[in-house]
């Protein structure tokens, strides 16, 4: 092999890559928060809501889960402006990520809800709790606990999948890497460094999730 590695070129412009990485982290964190809000609402409607709303949630989840993320992104960025709804590139990326993660998380949370034994819900009814109270006080906690690892995995997929928002000119990590690559022609060095940065971000979020699990679900509950 005669290829000479020149990482100097990449580290000269490391600041730009860090800015891109920061935007990736921000997008992912915001998509996580907003997507979970979407998921908790939709999962409730899906399991306990009136029939029309239930159908609507099913339609949303299936539409998103059976279309490519890139196409969803293009619809938000290129199609919605023609209807008068205009998002900047970064906002469009966030909207698409929330919609996408929300749908997958809805399905995961729904599975968690349905894993809660019927007996517990019946107890709630016997105590005279309202439907939403049963959801909030009895069902939600064990449901999320049961599917927490699946949610964390889905989130990491979203984080890594966010690399495609470079296609609509959002200046996140992959976009910066593509520009760096096409101006320095150092594809190997650029993408190796960027892969390491994604790895670090993903490991960081996984540690965050492990900590959340520990504090919320596991601590003081071992018997």
């Amino acid at each position: 092999m005669t290829y000479v590695f020149q990482f100097g070129i990449v580290f000269d412009r490391f600041g730009e890559l860090l800015e891109g990485a920061w935007l990736t982290v921000q997008l992912a964190a915001m998509a996580l928060a907003l997507g979970m809000a979407v998921a908790l609402t939709c999962a409730y409607l899906r399991t306990a809501g009136p029939k029309p709303l239930r159908m609507l949630v099913v339609a949303y989840v299936e539409a998103v889960r059976n279309t490519p993320f890139l196409v969803q992104l293009y619809i938000v960025f290129f199609s919605l402006p023609q209807l008068g709804v205009r998002f900047e590139a970064n906002q469009a990326a966030l909207v698409a990520m929330v919609v996408n993660f929300g749908a997958y998380a809805t399905e995961i949370v729904r599975a968690g809800i349905q894993s809660v034994p019927v007996g517990q819900i019946e107890v709630g009814r016997a105590l005279g709790l309202k439907r939403f109270q049963i959801y909030r006080l009895i069902v939600l906690f064990p449901a999320i606990k049961a599917v927490f690892p699946a949610l964390a995995s889905q989130f990491v997929l979203l984080l890594l999948g966010s690399s495609v928002v470079a296609a609509i000119s959002a200046k996140e990590l992959t976009a910066i890497a593509n520009t760096l690559q096409s101006t320095t022609f150092r594809a190997f060095e650029v993408y190796i460094v960027v892969a390491a940065m994604y790895l670090a971000i993903a490991v960081g979020f996984r540690a965050f999730f492990a900590a959340v699990y520990w504090f919320v679900f596991a601590r003081g509950r071992e018997r």
Binding site: F77, F78, R86, A89, A166, A167, I168, S169, K171, N178
Partner: peptide, 19 residues
């Protein structure tokens, strides 16, 4: 200055007023 990966996307961005 913003970059797209394909000519088609860049042109679409202009026609939809994104740039």
């Amino acid at each position: 200055i913003v970059f797209f990966d394909e000519h088609a996307a860049t042109q679409q961005a202009l026609l939809t007023g994104q740039i």
